[in-house]
């Protein structure tokens, strides 16, 4: 897949050089072979700052091919700066088709959400991860946390949950909620809301996690057990919302609060914009939905 162009100013396909991609693919394969295990990799400088998804971008760049269709979401939305820029980046350096429709995408790079629409076999979900180490909160030494993973010493993870219940009367951790993968490694699912944790369990899609600054890659292969940690008397629960989406009327989806004015007016709407638009196109509407709506599911051709 070397760049065919004779123009010396163009980048290699998908920006990264082929040696780097091979290195990252090896890390990904190792991650898939050991679900939940953090594989170190030689993270490269990317043309964007750390914290903007450099880990996810490197993973995506290493697996993307000319036939792939890419969707990028930032906290569920396709139209925020981060999502738009990364989509534009791959459109330019890999000349791939991009989409906002979950079902049409072959690769979905995400910052902190899993789409509401269930993923299917053959799709790859790439997470952008800021801090991959779930034990970091209580154990600052990397040498020690690696040993704890190696020896399966995960008591500390429950100490964190214990502290939550002691302080708040319930497990107050709502995002980056630790999971145990395939009964072995405890993993940070990146700062996704715990609402999305059950979607990771036995998902038909391949889930890849890239942490650029921390130089770690990990993976959950399709149909892998992903269990959220909890106590017998304080079982894991997802967030519930006491009202449906104000725009599409959806229930049992993850909602964002949107401030409407300076007088305390606000509404709760789907965090997954594609899901919301699709529902509205299908005729669902919530109590604050405008009378007309725009068509959804734009399919942008490659440049």
């Amino acid at each position: 897949m070397n760049a065919q162009s004779t123009d010396i100013a163009t980048y290699n396909f998908a920006y990264l050089d082929e040696q780097t991609k091979r290195m990252i693919r090896r890390a990904i394969l190792k991650g898939i072979a050991i679900p939940g295990y953090q594989v170190p990799f030689a993270s490269r400088e990317m043309p964007m700052p750390y914290g903007w998804g450099t880990g996810g971008v490197q993973v995506t760049a290493s697996i993307i091919g000319p036939d792939d269709v890419l969707k990028v979401i930032d906290q569920g939305a396709d139209d925020t700066t981060n999502a738009v820029s990364i989509r534009a980046f791959f459109k330019k350096v890999a000349k791939v088709d991009v989409t906002t429709e979950t079902a049409k995408a072959t690769i979905i790079q995400t910052r902190h959400r899993i789409p509401e629409q269930p993923l299917t076999a053959g799709q790859v979900l790439v997470f952008q991860v800021p801090i991959p180490e779930p034990l970091r909160f209580l154990e600052p030494r990397e040498t020690e946390t690696r040993k704890m993973h190696a020896l399966e010493e995960y008591g500390l993870m429950h100490v964190k949950l214990y502290e939550d219940i002691a302080k708040h009367g319930r497990i107050a951790t709502t995002y980056a909620y630790p999971v145990k993968v395939e009964g072995r490694y405890v993993m940070d699912p990146s700062p996704t809301p715990k609402f999305d944790n059950p979607k990771m369990h036995r998902s038909p899609a391949l889930q890849l996690f890239g942490a650029g600054r921390e130089k770690r890659i990990y993976a959950v292969p399709p149909f892998t057990e992903v269990v959220s940690l909890d106590f017998e008397d304080h079982p894991f629960e997802v967030q519930t919302f006491d009202q449906p989406c104000a725009l599409c009327g959806a229930e049992n989806v993850y909602l964002d609060e949107v401030i409407l004015d300076d007088h305390g007016g606000h509404m709760f709407v789907c965090s997954d914009t594609d899901h919301c638009e699709k529902r509205r196109a299908d005729g669902h509407h919530g109590h604050l939905a405008p009378e007309t709506h725009s068509a959804s599911g734009k399919m942008e051709p490659a440049e």
């Binding site: 209580l138 008591g155 100490v159 214990y162 219940i165 002691a166 302080k167 106590f231 017998e232 008397d233």
Partner: peptide, 22 residues
């Protein structure tokens, strides 16, 4: 562990050996 509560300090070993009842 100086940054977690006294209760969690005492409970850590129990959790380490698999007690999962808060």
């Amino acid at each position: 562990r100086m940054t977690v509560s006294a209760g969690a300090n005492v409970g850590e070993r129990l959790m380490a050996v698999g007690d999962r009842h808060y």
